[in-house]
Design a binder for these strands. Structure first.
Lengths: 229, 229
DNA sequence: AATTCATTGTGATATTTATCACGTGGCATT
DNA sequence: AATGCCACGTGATAAATATCACAATGAATT
């Protein structure tokens, strides 16, 4: 596992918040920050561990999970690059409420928490950006809670496909980053029901699916399913 | 609707965050803040309206709601006094994502948003407390999302009763602040199923229930239902 | 007290979704 | 090529929950 001291000034993958830092603040960040490459499948943080530093996902894809009843995995979010991980646990508690696992090879930065807090105290705009992203995360959870409670399964499955297409891959063609079991854990259903849903979409020509290669053929119908299904 | 200019220095119902404000900051807050008494049933904020000021619930009880599929009401939280309302919408978007309705007579303070932001810029500890409460709210949503997805209905109903008893009323005897329809909207089920659940708990001597007067008789069994049900 | 209207309780039935069971196919390892 | 291991597909069945229907009760208003 290679480590390197960062030059955050020239980083091409700055967070929305760190873009507002001044040069000397970026240097301070860089001096208290390590970039770590990880391979697909590795765990970044374990649910239940003490919070110790801020983790920034530079690039790649991560699943945010929690264990529920009978240790059953619940996937809350699929997170792409330029995102801080586990902020709610960090500022709202002393232990991590979630685990994070790499869905692709990726790089994370570990930032010393004292440094991070110092930057927050020094730079109100930075803090404001962080707060704003926390609030967006919060709105997203509420939105998901609403959907989970009121939509039927095929609607939630359609949502997941649209989410991958529009938010993650920005294309109508993509490779599913999750197994069907994981998709089930993401939308709150069983593997079998997920498989049936995908078969159904395939039969009705809403999508094509070979192995985990998806192409969305009829996005309007898929949105219709998301709405009414 | 009576309005009064506030003296926040002597306010007995300060938020956790405003407790760290200095005297002159409290005065500034008071000069840009109006306390408004509201009656049970009144709406404080409407989903979809533009965010305009910070709202602080001094005392009383509120339901936080959103309309979902077919305008069906989803109740996300029951909120008691000393809580800021709608912060996620305020800092994460430009419109309110939720409605807030008074479940009791209560008082709210409207705080001018510029003043609030100014205090955040001036006082890092204040900002930190606000952030921390946002993070706790966030963790709470995730927790609810997990429960909603993985627990069966009677378990969620037991959770709701325990929540009222432990978090809201701090007593094993209390008056339900919601109708059965609202409890259903809170735990994500139908009115009938809620009624059946309550009957079931009554029959099994976990609770007594007359009109909306509840007494929890067997809290351990209720927690058992919460866990396994 | 009579009236009205919202709320609650409960049986019967329908629908949705989970679970069980088992077969298939791809892919890595030997 | 044989082996084992996952992930996937799908039928049959069971379980959980929603929906429909209607009676009963309670609270508010006249």
């Amino acid at each position: 596992m290679v480590q390197q001291i960062n030059n955050c000034r020239i980083c091409k993958e700055k967070s929305c918040a760190s873009k507002v830092l001044r040069m000397e603040q970026l240097d301070e960040l860089g001096n208290n920050c390590r970039t770590i490459p990880l391979e697909k499948g590795e765990t970044i943080l374990h649910e239940g561990s003490f919070t110790s530093h801020v983790i920034y996902l530079r690039n790649g894809l991560i699943k945010e999970t929690m264990r529920g009843v009978d240790k059953k995995e619940q996937i809350f979010r699929i997170i792409k690059g330029k995102t801080y991980l586990g902020m709610s646990s960090l500022f709202g508690d002393t232990v991590n409420h979630f685990s994070y696992k790499a869905l692709t090879d990726l790089e994370v930065c570990h930032i010393e928490i004292g440094t991070f807090k110092k930057l927050m105290l020094e730079n109100a705009e930075f803090t404001y950006k962080i707060m704003s992203s926390l609030c967006k995360e919060n709105l997203h959870s509420y939105d998901k809670l609403l959907k989970q409670g009121q939509k039927k399964i095929f609607g939630r499955l359609a949502d997941a496909l649209l989410f991958f297409s529009e938010d993650i891959f920005e294309s109508t063609k993509f490779t599913l980053p999750l197994t069907q079991q994981e998709i089930a854990n993401f939308i709150g259903t069983s593997r079998e029901t997920t498989a049936r849903g995908l078969s159904n979409f395939k039969q009705n020509k809403l999508i094509t699916l070979n192995n985990s290669e998806v192409e969305i053929l009829d996005i309007n119908s898929l949105k219709q399913v998301s709405k009414n299904g």
